[in-house]
Computed example of a mutant assay.
Amino acid sequence: MRDTAPPKQLAFDLPLDPRYGAEDFLVSPSNEEAYGLIEAWPDWPDTVFLLRGPPGSGKSHLASIWASRAQAWTVSAAEVGHGDVAHLISNGALVVEDVDREAGRDEAALFHLLNLARERRFSVLLTASGPVDGFGLKVADLRSRLRLAPGAEIGPPDDALLKAVIVKLFVDRQLVVDLSVVEALALRIDRSLARAREIVAELDRDALGRRRRISKPLALAVLDRLGGEDGTDEPEPEDDEP
């Protein structure tokens, strides 16, 4: 008997550019202190500000908001070398991402950059995933300087923020889903915005490949396939809507 089931559609994993405008940042109790301190610039207590938070927590988004306001350049810590410092400070404001990442990091150049920032009164916003003592720094003066830098930490998202971010992730992909899908995801996934981004991307690929809408049963099936999620409900039968 001939199989009449519709062919599975090939899903292309195209890059999705995140929207980093101020109007796209969702403020909640987990990030309002960091947001407030970013908003307080240029009235910072120091020339250097350290923004910490887990991957996907919104550090780069906040840094982008500040960079737009301060007309700052943005570089990774690995791009700061001794030969680059004079050029980098010429702009008057700078974002240095991932100062906790050891690969390619020139600690002496970073320390020189921060000293010049203080001397010449230009602003530097640093981002990192965790506390300074976990950076693996070998230059004691740089470690001490970063410990003393004022800053803020973005905490794990609360329920309201997690749900709002999931909705935004679907909207960014021009996907319309029922509220029950958002509720099911927020209840079961790790409390992480990075994880929410991964799950929504996987759901998008899966739904496109199956040529189906994103429903709660499909969301539960994808979570079950990926594993490691905290599910409490019994599985529901898959719907048969195309």
Rank of each mutant, 00 (worst) to 15 (best):
Leu193Pro: 12
Asp204Ser: 02
Leu16Tyr: 11
Thr74Gln: 10
Ala109Trp: 05
Ala221Phe: 05
Gly134Cys: 05
Arg52His: 07
Trp41Asn: 03
Asp46Leu: 05
Leu62Trp: 07
Val139Gln: 02
Val165Arg: 08
Lys163Glu: 14
Asp239Val: 06
Val132Arg: 02
Met1Thr: 13
Arg225Phe: 12
Val165Ile: 14
Leu187Ala: 15
Lys216Arg: 10
Phe12Gly: 01
Glu102Cys: 05
Thr47Glu: 09
Glu153Arg: 14
Ala34Gln: 05
Ser57Ile: 04
Arg52Trp: 12
Leu116Ile: 11
Val27Asp: 10
Ala140Met: 12
Pro6Cys: 01
Asp230Ile: 11
Arg105Glu: 00
Ser28Ile: 09
Ala196Ile: 09
Asn115Ile: 01
Ala196Pro: 08
Ser76Met: 09
Pro29Ala: 07
Ala152Phe: 10
Ala164Pro: 11
Ile214Asn: 03
Glu102Ile: 03
Arg195Ile: 08
Val124His: 03
Leu137Ile: 01
Leu169Ser: 04
Asp46Ser: 13
Leu148Asp: 11
Ile166Pro: 10
Ala109Thr: 00
Leu110Gly: 00
Leu218Trp: 04
Glu153Trp: 08
Arg19Ile: 15
Arg197Phe: 11
Ser76Ile: 02
Ala78Phe: 00
Glu202Trp: 01
Asp141His: 01
Ile65His: 06
Pro237Tyr: 03
Leu62Arg: 05
Pro6Met: 02
Glu234Val: 15
Thr127Lys: 04
Val181Glu: 08
